[in-house]
């Protein structure tokens, strides 16, 4: 499975671009799409999912132009948009049966798959209840289930863990982790821990531009030896935040423990610590995002 973007751009209106000049090559695996709000993640995913056509550039799925033959993608696609609705008068089972029909699954296969997915998403107990009675997190799980219905070769999930409780988030990550063989999973989130445990590759976007395509290890390596922790007094915290990209603060009895990324030792008391993906991501956004 390969997905190739060449100078991909999507203009929404006037001079407002969701994404611009994005070029990348993706193969099998879990790709974490990271970026702050408004970075263009959802636009990028909508273009890949054939919801909207690119304004410029080309997108290829296994060598075929997606804009020219969107059905090549749709036939193997599982898609969970950031915002989606359900039919409130249907039960979870009925809704999934409907989506299975749209995806062209035979009835018997669909029923087995739905049983399996309701178990995986922990909705078995509520399968006969109308969706109007579901909470936001439960509807999100129905959305995850419909995305996995057709055992997709290309799975695109946009902010999939929004509204899920911690146990369900772990459950979702486990499911994604099990799916990686012979398929491409694109997982968009602004929660770094969601991709930390599953992503084999990372794409970082900011302000509609692709900042980097790399691996989690390589991104962390970029800030190796540049991550520091030290304690400052509360009244100095604002000044420290102004001068260094602070990734974490923890209030303690003797002041505030500050964690920041900096090429130079930011304070005589600062000690070097092991960088995390979150440190590396925030440094990339801070350092390359304004470029």
């Amino acid at each position: 499975m390969t997905l190739t973007a060449e100078n991909l751009g999507k203009r929404w209106s006037g001079d407002v671009w969701g994404i611009r000049n994005a070029s990348l090559d993706l193969d099998d695996g879990v790709v974490g799409l990271l970026g702050p709000n408004g970075a263009g993640k959802s636009t990028f995913m909508q273009v890949i999912a054939t919801v909207t056509k690119p304004t410029e550039g080309r997108l290829y799925w296994n060598g075929a132009d997606v804009a020219a033959s969107p059905n090549d993608v749709r036939s193997v696609l599982g898609y969970l948009p950031q915002d989606f609705g359900v039919y409130p008068n249907l039960t979870a089972t009925e809704f999934l049966e409907y989506m299975a029909a749209l995806k062209g699954l035979p009835g018997g296969v669909a029923r087995d798959r739905i049983d399996e997915l309701l178990a995986v998403t922990n909705l078995e107990e509520y399968r006969g209840r109308k969706l109007s009675g579901y909470s936001g997190g439960m509807r999100q799980r129905v959305g995850i289930a419909q995305a996995l219905l057709n055992d997709p070769d290309l799975l695109i999930v946009d902010e999939p863990t929004v509204g899920l409780d911690p146990a369900e988030r772990v459950r979702f990550r486990n499911v994604i982790g099990d799916l990686t063989e012979d398929r491409l999973v694109i997982l968009s989130t602004h929660i770094v821990t969601d991709v930390e445990s599953t992503a084999t590759e990372l794409v970082v976007l900011d302000d509609g531009r692709l900042l980097t395509q790399t691996t989690p290890e390589a991104l962390i390596d970029e800030v190796d030896g540049m991550t520091w922790e030290w304690t400052v007094s509360s009244d100095r915290l604002t000044a420290v935040k102004r001068s260094h990209p602070v990734t974490k603060t923890v209030r303690r009895a003797g002041g505030v423990l500050v964690r920041a990324v900096s090429p130079d030792r930011p304070d005589p008391d600062a000690t070097a610590v092991e960088p995390t993906l979150e440190d590396a991501y925030l440094w990339t956004i801070e350092h390359d995002g304004g470029a």
């Binding site: 999912a49 749709r74 749209l102 062209g104």
Partner: peptide, 14 residues
């Protein structure tokens, strides 16, 4: 009306 358009329009035969 129900916000399912992105799900339906990306299905096999919209």
């Amino acid at each position: 009306r129900h916000g399912t358009h992105e799900l339906v329009f990306t299905s096999l035969h919209p």
